[in-house]
Simulated scan of single mutants.
Amino acid sequence: MGSLRKDTKGQWIALSGLVISLILIGLAVLANQAILAGYHSSNAALEFPKENIRELNLHTHDNARMIRSMSFYINSTTNETVPDAFDQLFDNYSIQMKKLYAVHGEVVDVSMVSINSTTGKYTMDDIDMVLVNITYDDGITHYVAEPELIEVNK
């Protein structure tokens, strides 16, 4: 029995096995952290609402052109002036956009600043531009375009 206590060759094998296993565990943890860091960095780029902002701008431009046509139609069928009809229709559009984006937890404000006319008569060819303030906020990203120039006679 005494000779087994003095024989320490097996301790070196056990110690080297423990060291190698700790090194392998450390490498596995580092590889896992690298994978998670890559996932989170790529996911952060996807969380930016670029498409939502682009879609809001596109809808606003398209609807401003439609509202222009509708305001001239309202002017031809009723006694309401073109600027008043345009204001009323654009306010309705703004309210609808607030409600649509609120469903997704986003705050949107689309407000008209002014209608620019070349002559001041408001015929179909005279309304050229509309100045609009567009604000988008989803709690993380805040986007403001003040004033956004929309050419409506395209």
Rank of each mutant, 00 (worst) to 15 (best):
N32A: 13
K99P: 01
I140P: 01
I95R: 15
G17M: 14
E80Q: 14
A31Q: 02
V113Q: 12
A37P: 03
E151C: 00
L15I: 13
E146R: 10
D125V: 07
S117K: 04
S42M: 05
R54A: 11
A145I: 03
D128W: 00
L27C: 04
P147A: 10
L58V: 03
N75L: 03
P83K: 04
I67L: 06
L15V: 13
L18Q: 09
E47G: 01
D128N: 08
T78W: 09
A31D: 01
G105I: 14
D137N: 15
G105K: 12
D84F: 06
N153P: 03
D91W: 04
S114T: 03
S16I: 12
T119P: 02
Q96H: 14
V82D: 02
I140H: 10
G38Q: 10
S114M: 01
N92E: 12
S111E: 12
L22C: 09
N43C: 00
T118Q: 08
V144G: 06
N32F: 09
I134W: 08
F86M: 10
I67F: 05
T141C: 12
L149Q: 09
V103D: 04
V29F: 09
Y136D: 06
D126I: 01
I150M: 04
L131Y: 06
V132R: 00
M112P: 01
I115Q: 02
Y143S: 11
R68C: 04
I23A: 09
S41N: 14
E51T: 03
S16R: 11
M66T: 07
N63V: 04
K154Y: 14
G139Y: 05
N63D: 10
L36I: 11
T119S: 14
G105W: 13
D137V: 11
I95W: 09
L24G: 01
L15K: 10
S71Q: 07
D84C: 01
Y101M: 11
S69P: 01
D84W: 02
A45C: 02
S114Y: 00
L56V: 08
A85E: 08
L100M: 13
D126Y: 02
V108I: 11
S21M: 12
A44C: 06
F86R: 03
R54F: 05
E80V: 13
V110S: 08
I150A: 05
S41T: 15
N153V: 02
V107M: 15
W12T: 10
N43T: 06
S16G: 12
A85D: 08
V103G: 01
N79A: 14
Q11V: 15
G38T: 09
V144I: 12
N43R: 08
L18N: 07
M66P: 00
M97F: 02
S111A: 11
V132Q: 00
I127Y: 01
M112C: 07
D62C: 02
D87S: 13
I134R: 05
T119D: 13
